[in-house]
C-alpha cells in the first residue's frame, strides 16, 4: 500500500511541478507578460486594449490570486483562451487529442511488443551471431533522430514508391462506407506509427536484451536447457522474470512517444496535439502551448500511474518465495 501511495505522490508531484511551471514561466521571464500570455503583438495594441488585457489576465493582482485564477481556469475546463484560434484551448485540444491517441497508443503497444520479442530473441543467447546482428542494428537505428526516419520513410515509401499517402488523415472522396473509411484511415496512419515505432524501439530492444542477457546466465535457464525445454519455453521463462521492468519502461516511454509525435505530426501534416504544439510555437500562441503541455502531461501521468500500479500489484512479496 505504501508503494502505491509513493508512486502516486511522485507522479502527481511531477504533474504539479508542470502546472506551476506553466504558471510561472510567462510571468517570470523577460519580455512583456501580456504578449507572453496572449500571443498578441504589443505594438499592434492601443494603450486601452493593453490595459484591458492587463486587467483581464489578472496581471495587476497579487501572485497568489493570479495562481488561484490560473487553477480556476484549469478546474472549470477552459484551460485558457487562445486569441489565435479564437476559442478556448480546451475546445481546440479536444478536437485534436483523439488523433494523437490514434497514433501514440498503437506506437507504444507495437514498439513494446517488438522490443520484447526481438530483445528476448537476442538476449536469450547473448553474444552469439544473432545477438550481434540485433544489437548492432539497434544501435545504428537508435542513432537516427526521429525526423530523419520520418523523412526517409516519406521519401522512399510515400514519394518515390507511392505505396503510402504523403500525409493527412483521410483521402478525399472515400465515401460514407465505414469499413472503407477505417481502412483508409489505417492506411494513412501506417507511416506515422511506423516512424514512431522505429524511433522508439531500438533503445527498448537494447534494454530488454540487457535484461534478458542477465537472466540467461542464471542457473534456472541452464537447468531448463539441460532438461531439454524448447527455446520458446526458455524465452517465456525469461520473459516472466523480466516483465516488470519492461512494463515500467513502457510507462515511461509513453511520454517519449508523445514528445516524438510533435515532430512526426508536423512532417506528416496530421492534425493532432503535436502539430498543435508546433504551430503554437511558430505562431507564438502561448496559451495554447500551455494548455497542450498540461494535457500531454496529464496523459503521461495517467499512463505512468497505470504502469506503476501494475508493477506494484504484480511484485512478489518478500518472504513468499522460498
Amino acid at each position: 500500500m505504501k508503494k502505491y501511495i509513493y508512486s502516486a505522490i511522485t507522479t502527481l508531484t511531477a504533474f504539479a511541478l508542470i502546472i506551476v511551471f506553466n504558471f510561472a514561466l510567462p510571468r517570470m521571464l523577460t519580455g512583456d507578460p501580456v504578449a507572453m500570455l496572449t500571443g498578441l503583438d504589443e505594438q499592434a495594441m492601443t494603450e486601452e486594449m493593453y490595459q484591458y488585457y492587463y486587467h483581464a489576465l489578472g496581471l495587476d493582482l497579487p501572485f497568489h490570486k493570479q495562481f488561484a485564477m490560473y487553477l480556476g481556469s484549469i478546474a472549470d475546463g477552459t484551460l485558457g483562451y487562445s486569441y489565435h484560434y479564437n476559442s478556448t484551448v480546451a475546445e481546440i485540444v479536444a478536437g485534436r487529442i483523439g488523433v494523437t491517441i490514434q497514433i501514440a497508443l498503437p506506437a507504444v503497444v507495437i514498439s513494446s511488443l517488438i522490443a520484447l520479442w526481438i530483445g528476448l530473441y537476442a538476449g536469450s543467447r547473448p553474444l552469439r551471431l544473432r545477438d550481434s546482428i540485433v544489437t548492432n542494428s539497434a544501435v545504428a537505428v537508435n542513432a537516427l533522430p526521429s525526423f530523419v526516419i520520418a523523412m526517409l520513410l516519406l521519401a522512399t515509401l510515400a514519394y518515390k514508391a507511392k505505396l503510402f499517402p504523403l500525409g493527412n488523415l483521410n483521402s478525399v472522396g472515400v465515401g460514407d462506407n465505414i469499413a472503407l473509411r477505417i481502412v483508409d484511415r489505417v492506411w494513412h496512419l501506417v507511416l506515422p506509427v511506423a516512424t514512431l515505432v522505429l524511433a522508439s524501439a531500438p533503445s527498448k530492444i537494447l534494454y530488454v536484451r540487457n535484461l534478458a542477457a542477465r537472466e540467461a546466465h542464471s542457473k534456472y535457464i541452464l537447468f531448463a536447457r539441460a532438461r531439454g525445454l524448447s527455446e520458446h519455453n526458455v524465452r517465456m521463462s525469461i520473459a516472466a522474470n523480466i516483465i516488470r521492468p519492461i512494463v515500467a519502461m513502457t510507462g515511461i516511454s509513453f511520454g517519449a512517444i508523445l514528445g516524438g509525435s510533435v515532430v512526426v505530426e508536423t512532417l506528416f501534416s496530421i492534425p493532432g496535439m503535436g502539430m498543435l504544439v508546433s504551430d503554437a510555437v511558430n505562431n507564438r500562441d502561448y496559451p495554447t502551448l500551455q494548455g497542450c503541455l498540461f494535457v500531454i502531461c496529464a496523459c503521461v501521468v495517467v499512463f505512468k500511474l497505470v504502469a506503476d500500479i501494475f508493477c506494484i500489484a504484480t511484485s512478489v512479496k518478500r518472504g513468499s518465495a522460498q
Partner: peptide
C-alpha cells in the same frame, strides 16, 4: 515522470 520533449518545446 516528466515528458522531456513537450516540456522542452514549451
Amino acid at each position: 515522470a516528466i515528458p522531456k520533449l513537450p516540456l522542452m518545446v514549451v
